[in-house]
Design a protein around this nucleic acid. Sequence first.
DNA 1: CCAAAAGTGTTGAGTATACACCCATGA
DNA 2: TCATGGGTGTATACTCAACACTTTTGG
Lengths: 239, 239
Amino acid sequence: MADAGEFTIENRPPANATHEAAAIARPKVAVDTVLFAVGGRGLECYLLQLASGPNAGKWAFAGGLVRVGETLDGAARRALRDASALTDAYLEQLFSFGDPSRDPTSHVVSVAYMALIDNPKRVGAASAKYSGGRWFAAGDLPELAYDHSLMAGYAVARLRAKLEYTNIACALLPPSFTFAELEEVYAAVLERPLDRRNFRRRIMAMDLLRRTPEQRRGAHRPAALYAFKHRSVRAIQML
Amino acid sequence: MADAGEFTIENRPPANATHEAAAIARPKVAVDTVLFAVGGRGLECYLLQLASGPNAGKWAFAGGLVRVGETLDGAARRALRDASALTDAYLEQLFSFGDPSRDPTSHVVSVAYMALIDNPKRVGAASAKYSGGRWFAAGDLPELAYDHSLMAGYAVARLRAKLEYTNIACALLPPSFTFAELEEVYAAVLERPLDRRNFRRRIMAMDLLRRTPEQRRGAHRPAALYAFKHRSVRAIQML
DNA sequence: CCAAAAGTGTTGAGTATACACCCATGA
DNA sequence: TCATGGGTGTATACTCAACACTTTTGG
């Protein structure tokens, strides 16, 4: 029930139950954000190198402590902005990790988020907390700080699952795109090739897309451009 | 990255970064546990009446603050034990709720859990934090404290979804049971009747059950008793 | 006219659904 | 013997996967 004003026998404040500052030590709350985009190497994941602390030099996801008065989504958005200058990523809460030993410094409960953007090139400079950042193939991440490898696993699993029953792909694509580009996103995330005809039929049956009047002209036959009918992520009604 | 030893410009400790106790105010972490069982009225949900605090008299789920050194699962288990004397429920983390206004007393981030037991009669006495507890039909809950109505919605949705692709029903059933009882659990959670023949075929195809040598004898034809091959919850491989 | 990517249908297998009667037992 | 819940099979509709050729353009 999450009420700071009530205490069980085993969970009693020092003496003065009404004085907040007198509270006993509590775990802190942080957020960590697993950022994905589809790039040249398929599904890619953005990592930052920690500049200081006991994990200095190790790779990690964008994260930070949650402040009083801040929502979790807000904290995740701020952590992502500080680490990559992104302000408009799709964000979705994944899972909370609370093992007391996950951070050797102190007990920090971390709420993991997944973030999606349509183009890996859109990431910008990181704050001084990080000494650098770069994209890695999602299937081939280096050793990560804290329990961030665990988080990465959760994130990939969630993304894969939601691709099948939501329009989440819209967060990995620009406003308009060709069918081939859409298929590329699915193939990258699912890590398997898809049959072009069956894929087109399946997507069309979901009634997610709107054909735009424009075409993409390139070296060969022009491709029709499509856009998602709804840019907000929602479950697909399967009859 | 959840590192208490690192700070951005906007997130700096007062003066002495190495001294933990000097840290600025942070949100607290709690857990709340949505307990389900299948009973006479279908899917039922256990609520506790808060004994004190600003929400005294309101119904809520079992919950409490997480302690330093405690895992989230451990805290959920403790909250459930304090509220209902249950020690062996199936527990699964659902989602974290962090809106600063969800608890008017202070900023508390709550990690919601779902708990399942095989029989509503197994709940025991609650700690002094609660003035009482009882089961409600899951589809007809009273007004709840905090954001617990939201949590209830998440919990029911998760349970319904997992019934379809995991063996989670094993947590809602005793070690052995008849096919009719299994069907009853599914019908109660999904809130729709199932065709007995199709249901049996589907379950059998999943290869989850083991037929026990015993029979249940009652007023009529005896029923074969089944048990789950695996009592731990796992996803079902759908070919 | 050639290279390269875009676009399009059909068939067969397997899966899901609808549906009704006999069986075994205790009272 | 009857009332009650336990247990079983089939026919049909639908969904999903496999599969190859034609079209359009730029160079």
